[in-house]
Write a protein that binds this DNA or RNA. Structure first.
Length: 418
RNA sequence: GGAGGGGUCGCAUAGUGGCCGAGUGCGUACGCUUGGAAAGCGUAUAUGCCGCAAGGUAUCGCGGGUUCGAAUCCCGCCCCCUCCGCCA
């Protein structure tokens, strides 16, 4: 949520930010509602004052005059309060639709075609044969089974089996080791959260509710990323400044409906309804925000670079940025079968946008300030597995294991069991 | 799932319709006292909103209702605890 004071003082900046993010919203209209709200608020406060004065005068039994007067005030108050609440709700609804402001170093651009490639590491793998895609490899090696998952769960699900399942655990183990060494607190969070929390995170108001699995009977939601249950841990809390930066590495299953992506990445397990993810979340002071963002990106790079697969780093332009983020970096890894780089991680800062909504502050001397919250992917399991299968495949259909992961596994190669 | 009890100012507790934004103790901060410390004494100790300010207004888990007036009464929800049942 945007700071209302900031909005009042800088409507043009906010309007431009929304436009740059391709979000159609009339800021002036919101300011008009705000003005109306303030006017009504003053009116209501005056009437309440009247009431409080009257109540103060009544010591024991009220006289019929006083009751009469009180009743009049009550009627008047009720009327104005109703107006106030209606306008207040309207104002709040609009405020929640205003996106976070992009940081100044984020390029203004209309969509993903204008994202900036800021770094490229390694060269795309060259093959002396035609590389297979992950599904073909995975089926032949008996480590991925999409067909049976479709039978059991429907489209966009998959079984990871044998070395495939072990590969996931190895990646998780590797990421946890590295990040715990960096001081991150390991956590396995709940994957089901309350509606009020999902609302608080802003996911239900930004037109993304279609992407969320809900358990209507219980009024609960399945998380799309563990960030959704790690960040709100501190809802309505005031952290000590010395506690910051506070960093978590979480492991959880993630659930996404993937509505609106029909026909996109339908093959294999690149885009599925359920996957496991190792995620980083940081709580920092405002001064540390930029530094922390670079830090999270550097950790993502460190983890992925260790797999020795070519990747590039992309800074997302305004039009592709998303509602909560003020800046976002993606790492894209080389996918031989598609002959291009595809997103495998993403690191965002939400500045104080989420913390304002969830009321997460830290004590700085006499002042309470909103914390800045950042998040980044360590490994979102299916995708690094896909990149490993495809980049490490051999002509005979077997797949080598990246050196860094070998110490977590009892094999150096995945071969066909037939 | 069944039966009961409960959520008050950092913590513990008092408070069953007006004298309660809320007492007491602990904790914390500052001051006095002391050679220094402890004890003791004194003062202070939530937050949002409107306002230049004075001040006003709201908040006793959350939301609604009754009343001239609600921490207190009524209804719904959330959460915690005890007992029974079930269970990895």
């Amino acid at each position: 949520m945007i700071d209302l004071k900031f909005l009042r003082e800088n409507p043009k900046i906010v309007q431009k930010a929304a436009k740059d993010k391709n979000i159609d919203i009339n800021i002036n209209h919101i300011l008009e509602i705000d003005a109306k709200y303030k006017e009504l608020q003053l009116k209501v406060q005056k009437i309440r004052e009247e009431r409080n004065v009257l109540v103060g005068e009544i010591k024991g039994r009220p006289t019929s005059d006083q009751i009469e007067k009180g009743k009049n005030i009550k009627v008047k108050l009720e009327k104005e309060e109703n107006s106030l609440n209606a306008v207040g709700d309207e104002l709040k609804t609009w405020l929640l639709k205003i996106p976070n402001l992009p940081k100044s170093d984020v390029k203004v651009g209309k969509d993903e075609s204008e994202n900036e490639i800021i770094k490229k590491v390694g060269d795309p793998k060259q093959f002396s044969f035609t590389p297979k895609d992950h599904l073909e490899l995975g089926e032949a090696l008996d480590i991925i089974d999409v067909k049976r998952a479709t039978k059991v769960s429907g489209s966009r699900f998959g079984y990871l089996k044998n070395e495939g399942a072990l590969l996931e655990f190895a990646l998780k183990q590797f990421a946890f080791e590295v990040l715990i060494k960096e001081g991150f607190i390991p956590v396995i969070p709940p994957v089901i959260i309350k509606k009020e929390i999902m609302d608080g995170l802003g996911y239900t108001q930004m037109g993304e509710e279609e992407n969320i699995f809900s358990l209507d009977k219980d009024n609960l939601y399945l998380v799309g990323t563990s960030e959704q249950s790690i960040v709100p841990m501190f809802k309505d809390e005031v952290l000590k400044k010395e506690e910051l930066p506070k960093r978590f590495v979480g492991f959880s299953t993630c659930f996404r409906r993937e509505a609106g992506s029909y026909g996109k990445d339908t093959r294999g397990i690149f885009r599925v309804h359920q996957f496991d993810k190792v995620e980083m979340v940081s709580f920092v002071t405002e001064d540390e925000d930029d530094k922390e963002h670079e830090y999270l990106l550097s950790l993502e790079e460190k983890l992925f670079k260790a797999l020795e697969i070519s990747y590039r780093v992309v800074r997302i332009c305004t039009g592709d940025l998303g509602f909560n983020a003020a800046r976002k970096y993606d790492i894209e890894a080389w996918i031989p079968s598609q002959n291009k780089y595809r997103e495998i991680t993403s690191a965002s800062t939400t500045t104080d946008f989420q913390s304002r909504r969830l009321n997460i502050k830290y004590q700085d001397g006499n002042e309470k300030k909103y914390v800045n919250i950042l998040n980044g992917t360590a490994f979102s399991m299916n995708r690094p597995i896909i990149t490993i299968l495809e980049n490490y495949q051999q002509e005979d259909g077997s797949v080598l294991i990246p050196k860094i992961l070998q110490k977590y596994l009892h094999f150096e190669k995945i071969t066909s069991k037939k």
